[in-house]
Design a protein around this nucleic acid. Structure first.
Lengths: 280, 280
DNA sequence: TTGCCGCTGGATCGTCCGTTACAGCTTCTA
DNA sequence: TAGAAGCTGTAACGGACGATCCAGCGGCAA
């Protein structure tokens, strides 16, 4: 039962003063959810008792009940399409993924702070700094996508991975000012945290893509981007991570326009010389 | 300033009990907006004073301030998403990626044919068939994501890659009925087409994720999924590919529910035995 | 004009809230 | 091992809240 419906049912039994309360309530249910009796009384130019009587006329116990209804209404409205879809029998997985990932992408990119984005792009586009991509097992796909694309527009990109020994060797080359971009979700892999700590100790600038702002990954990171990763199955979704990678690489490419074009041309030339691509 | 941002800024200065409060607050900002100090204290297994101290550590006057921030956040969130998108300047790359990738995901998943999806899931969930993931340089990130997640729910998953010799050796093991899932966009890599032809010759069932229905990848494939890959920068977007991977793995996990759970438990057990994950 | 009835808001009550002071406890340090 | 510093919850306080009581007011019929 929404507030509007409750009011509509009771409106014929309301006194003039109560009707003024009803007007205010219907026009601004948020005022009921967050406000007090006194506030509502003032806004409707009535009094506390009138507001309480209005609530009881709707069939509720008192103002507290009315407030609870208003709050429930807001929570329902806030619940993303995801939650509503999830309540249905999971017969159509594709539809669920569609709703979930649209929410994920929207939430993730809307949460991106403009300054942080520009800052991260600047770091990644600075050819004086090398870039180390550090991703856990489950985020490795996104990490490799990022590494691959960055590598196409600038030199000095290293995707950390393989054996611990190999990672140690790779990280040993890190110099102060180099960038570590780390992608990892909760249940953080220990080796990854170790490598990250070592990199920080060596003076690396850290850019973090993670699923919670409170993650240990985000601690002391220069820039943090929180990724929405709600998954339909047993796993997190990495769709939003990929969208963020898309944004970052597009940003870097835009920043490096001239030199990136030259680099792409060179790569292109090398490919066609080897006849390694088919255009069909 | 959102609550998540405030918390992120202060998290390093928080005590353990305060951090428990932070977890609850970040996980459920609505609880702050509508709830009370006592409620938050109970839910975070702390006390009233700890909750208040937490609020002051965020730079606020007290809990009342924190609640006001939470309420503002809810009011903002209630405004339609389109209004928020339009607040960004059109030059903003993040906004462009948001619009583009939302379209990509929607177009891709809406174009998925139900029968093809069920058929592909059946193939991938058939533990009698091995699964070979074949992805080009550009799509390797998505391929690895698919391979990693499939590997968590079933055995016999191989991500083809590395040197041509290694791929040749891997593909030599392919038996009729095995599944090759290929992910590649236009300007197809020659070696990939070669491998694909060889696999088909060996009796593989082919599932293709590609950017055009007329692609050589799609020819003679058992099931084809066309991915929308419009990119903002110089590169294709792989966001929609990731969404499709999400759907496929969720489908396979649902189909293999029992055995997948057992396999996940075993993997989980192995992880925790090695103390390789950090939960914080 | 008088008496009645229902509408309305001021005044008051009890409760619960957020806040603060303080003491017990743990954990480092010398 | 003794001491100090910091973390944490209990207890108490002041204030604000919703609910209730009841007097005043206006409209209406006789």
């Amino acid at each position: 039962m929404t507030i509007a419906e409750l009011v509509a049912d009771a409106v014929s039994r309301l006194t003039p003063a109560e009707r003024r309360v009803a007007d205010v309530v219907v026009a601004d249910p948020q005022g009921v959810a967050f406000g007090t009796v006194a506030e509502l009384a003032t806004r409707s130019r009535t009094s506390g008792p009138t507001v309480v009587r209005f609530a009881t006329k709707l069939g509720l116990q008192g103002f507290a009940d009315l407030q609870a209804v208003a709050q429930t209404e807001i929570v329902d409205a806030l619940r993303p399409a995801t939650a509503r879809i999830r309540e249905r029998p999971p017969s159509d997985i594709v539809a669920q993924v569609l709703a979930t990932d649209l929410d994920n992408v929207r939430a993730t990119l809307e949460a991106v702070d403009g300054d942080a984005f520009r800052g991260a792009v600047s770091l990644l586009a600075d050819r004086g700094r090398r870039v180390f991509v550090l991703a856990g097992e489950i985020a490795r796909g996104a990490g490799i996508a990022l590494g691959t694309q960055l590598d196409l527009v600038r030199a000095g990109v290293v995707v950390l991975g393989g054996s611990p020994a190999r990672v140690a060797r790779q990280i040993a080359e890190l110099e102060p000012g180099d960038v570590v971009i780390v992608i990892e979700h909760r249940r953080y892999e220990r080796w990854l945290l170790d490598v990250l700590a070592r990199a920080r100790g060596a003076g690396a600038e850290v850019v973090a893509l993670t699923d919670r702002s409170l993650s240990p990954i985000a601690t002391d990171a220069r820039y943090v981007f929180v990724v929405a990763a709600t998954g339909v199955g047993p796993f997190d979704s990495h769709t939003a991570t990929m969208a963020l990678v898309h944004a970052l690489t597009a940003g870097v490419a835009a920043r490096l326009r001239r030199s990136a074009a030259a680099r792409l041309d060179a790569i292109e030339h090398s490919w066609s010389a080897g006849n390694e691509l088919v255009d069909a």
